[in-house]
Design a protein around this nucleic acid. Structure first.
Lengths: 347, 347
DNA sequence: CTGAAAGCGCTAACAA
DNA sequence: TTGTTAGCGCTTTCAG
């Protein structure tokens, strides 16, 4: 059975498609007799009409759809996606997710299977995608906003500054009496200029402490677990781990547990991002919390303003991620420490 | 600057739009001279062309876009969304996320801001949405597949059977020596016929044990934490908690920790869904694992088959979620138990 | 208040 | 091998 179209409704009520359109979009509300309007609304409901948004977008140039470009929908990224949905809900916008990062050949991608025609694009933690797009798009005007700790300055952006938080973390650890403070990061975090690593190194220099960097292949729990597990087999001297993100912190935590060591007494751990898990760990994990709600709201506002006025000067937003101190980095006197028992595991 | 269209390219190379279309879609590859093809491809690249998918969809009736209807993008749902993206990646499909559950007035929703015209719809854990859609759509033929532990039989489905897993959980706890086994659930889980609750009650009857149900407002960590925290202030007699999902298990775990009790010695905990967090908790959490990869693959196959042949008989898939035993439900002899210390918290 | 006509950008049949 | 034509479903002047 064919989908019901405007024309069908027009026929049904003996009016023209134009009139039906006016009623159904609400655009000509005052120009249509109440009677006609009622008949049309009624028929539309009865016949189960729903507009073809592709057709509408084709003529209006508006899709009421925005894209989220992200590498995955896991971990912290899924939290952003979820929050963005919350921001969108009051509007009539929908969100299409494109995992654009995995398409290395941008030109081919755009030509073969271009993304949906959206009214705006939020790019999460992927300045490469932004810049590849800007180049390929050559003056196309779909608003695009670069969001996250990794962002591009070539377009509107909502940047997250992690460096203050990392500095706070290092200083906090020193205040707690830790001295051998290592940075657990991943290959990605080793790229030149990485904010986290740089801030860590700078803070250590500031405090006259030797920097030590532990590098895992990827920033996942599993990779962190393996790296720390291996290190713990040899002589492990770090007293504290400033981790690239919460995922790595959780993996490292597990490795420390398995080795029969105690967090935070033997090893302190801090994460980054502020995923909910850090709050519910038996030993809550100190982390550097990204203000996700603010980030998403700002991104949305950027897009809407840009849509209104393409000539607007570059919109630059910077939000700070701040340290949230929890038990995983708080050295307490023995009598203060309640222990929560938990079987380790032997493998 | 206007977007580059087919016509622009046609003009540029002195050919007709039809020819350009043939080349760019690859559909008429053999019917076009190599020379013309090269020229077109070249111009398209040079001019930064990318097709208007709305226009294409309008004429072909294919959008190469599927929708995921879900309540949120958090917790377990985000894992499914992420996996679905993985399944989609090799295809040329994109995914639009609609949080359709929060639109109670379906008719209004469809008429005012209908969702994108997609080639298929995956509905996660929301039979109401499926049925509202089927009713509102009246014979429209967008393939729709109902997925999850809550599903509708009125369309193709990939059902997750949790009951076997819940039964396994209860039996496992009894084998470990637990007797006072309560079910921690939420209002949602109290609706008549809920698979988890029903399976729990049945298993308890089977074993001649008294059922006890603890009900939180919602199935979140926070709500579980509060409910169990409150119960622990009074006389708490449950030795084991079979939780509605992993979120609640994690919340309950935290409450038990805070009270200075030990998991699993004082209280055993089992979750449901199999989110990654359960594997990385210092004390790994026993859970009932949903085979997410299988679920997503089957859903996708359902959609594609249905797209090929709308007359296909109803596709019914059932996958089982099975118990995965971890430390949170394993009673060990004291000398086996390594404890992992962790500061409790007083508030 | 209503409708006729044009056209958004693209594809598909058919003709040349 | 290429171009012409028609039209997908909708909105938008503009004329009635």
């Amino acid at each position: 059975m064919r989908r019901v179209t405007l024309r069908d409704i027009a026929q049904e009520v003996g009016r023209s498609p134009a009139t039906v359109s006016k009623v159904l979009t609400g655009r000509g509300d005052s120009l249509v007799s109440a009677e006609t309007r009622r008949a049309i609304l009624d028929a539309a409901r009865r016949m189960g009409y729903s507009p073809n948004l592709a057709a509408r977008a084709l003529v209006t140039g508006r899709s009421y759809c925005i894209a989220l470009w992200t590498e995955t929908l896991a971990d912290f990224h899924s939290i952003v996606a979820n929050q963005l949905m919350d921001v969108l809900r009051p509007s009539r916008y929908e969100m299409v997710i494109t995992d654009v990062v995995k398409h290395p050949d941008w030109h081919a991608y755009f030509q073969r299977s271009a993304p949906w025609p959206v009214d705006g694009i939020v790019v999460l933690d992927s300045p490469q995608s932004v810049e590849a797009y800007l180049e390929a798009a050559q003056g196309r005007t779909t608003p695009i906003v670069s969001v996250g700790a990794y962002y591009s300055e070539k377009t509107d952006y909502v940047a997250v500054d992690l460096s203050v938080g990392v500095r706070e973390a290092v200083h906090h650890l020193v205040e707690q009496g830790y001295r051998r403070i290592a940075h657990l990061t991943c290959r990605h975090g080793m790229r030149p200029g990485d904010a986290r690593r740089t801030a860590y190194e700078r803070a250590m220099v500031e405090l006259g402490l030797p920097a030590e960097i532990i590098i895992a292949e990827e920033s996942s729990r599993e990779h962190a677990l393996r790296v720390i597990r291996d290190l713990l087999r040899g002589p492990f001297t770090a007293e504290a781990l400033v981790c690239f993100n919460d995922e790595m912190a959780i993996g490292a935590y597990r490795a420390v547990c398995e080795a029969g060591l105690k967090v935070p007494d033997d090893v302190a751990i801090t994460g980054c991002d502020g995923i909910p898990d850090t709050r519910y760990f038996p030993c809550r994990i100190t982390t550097i919390e990204q203000p996700v709600e603010t980030i998403c709201r700002l991104a949305w506002e950027c897009l809407m303003r840009r849509l209104d006025d393409p000539e607007l000067p570059r919109q630059r937003n910077i939000v700070r991620a701040r340290l949230v101190v929890r038990e995983s980095s708080l050295r307490r006197s023995p009598q203060e420490t309640k222990t929560i028992p938990c079987p380790g595991e032997s493998s």
